[in-house]
């Protein structure tokens, strides 16, 4: 099941070893491999939700194979809306996606904007470097998309988990550990400092129930995994970083004359 139309794709000449490994017979690390598979699926799902609009194929997954699991965790789609008028559901989620994540005034889903206030800054370079180390490169599907998009980054975590599972499948524990380190490092260093807080703000502004739920789910998943990865001090630091918001400085109207000249 390929949940993602991820815009991170294997680079030419890269990642061949992983793909070859993927077709090898499963080895003996069944439980960990299954866990990694689940992790891969979860992050790919979250990435797919945030990376681009819901389309008919994804909606079919949401209302089909994924439905029981989603229902179990509380992500419930409005049956009447989805089943009676799927086109309207797709249109309304597309409109909401554009308003939330694309159009001016949106809650920009890019780490560069979150960290630096501008598009395409150093966090982009860091994301690209991580993708390249894993043998991937970023290709946008629409204009105005950058490598440090939260959805793409979540999808990348899923991809790394999948590689880990594959390595375990062929009993290559060294390789699996290498993939795990990459995943955990990426999660801690590139998503951890901002993505959960971003999810919280975006959720507050989301008007469509689907995105409110997805954003809440994403935030919870991230906090859960970050708590497992980070020591107490580091986790507190992440909590602080994710609380970042513009500070309203006290403004004394009498300090400067109206002219201000």
């Amino acid at each position: 099941m390929d949940l993602s139309q991820n815009t991170v794709s294997p680079a030419r000449g890269g990642a061949t070893k992983c793909e070859e490994a993927a077709v090898s017979p499963a080895g003996g690390h069944g439980a960990r491999a299954a866990e990694c598979d689940a992790l891969a699926g979860l992050y790919r799902f979250l990435g797919r939700c945030l990376e681009e609009e819901v389309d008919a194929d994804f909606l079919a997954l949401l209302t089909g194979p994924l439905r029981p699991a989603l229902t179990e965790i509380g992500l419930v789609l409005d049956d009447s809306l989805v089943q009676s008028d799927a086109a309207a559901f797709l249109a309304s989620t597309a409109e909401e996606f554009t308003a939330l994540f694309v159009a001016p005034g949106a809650v920009s889903p890019y780490r560069s904007v979150f960290e630096k206030g501008r598009n395409f800054q150093e966090p982009c370079d860091e994301a690209i470097a991580a993708y390249r180390q894993a043998g991937l490169e970023f290709q946008n599907r629409y204009s105005g998309e950058f490598p440090d998009h939260v959805g793409v980054m979540l999808g990348f975590v899923g991809w790394l988990a999948e590689r880990e599972a594959e390595s375990l499948g062929v009993a290559d524990e060294v390789a699996a550990d290498a993939w795990r380190v990459r995943r955990e490092t990426f999660l801690l260093e590139q998503l951890g400092p901002w993505a959960p807080g971003w999810c919280r703000r975006a959720r507050i502004l989301a008007q469509h129930a689907f995105y409110r739920q997805v954003l809440e789910l994403t935030e919870r998943v991230l906090w859960h995994d970050l708590q497992a990865l980070a020591d107490r001090r580091r986790f507190k630091e992440l909590e602080r970083l994710n609380r970042r918001a513009p500070v309203r400085l006290d403004y004394d109207a009498d300090f400067r004359k109206a002219s201000g000249l």
């Binding site: 979150f114 960290e115 630096k116 206030g117 703000r201 970042r244 918001a245 513009p246």
Partner: peptide, 9 residues
């Protein structure tokens, strides 16, 4: 706020 609260710039 927080509509345009984009974080850490």
């Amino acid at each position: 706020d927080p509509e345009y609260a984009l974080g850490g710039d």
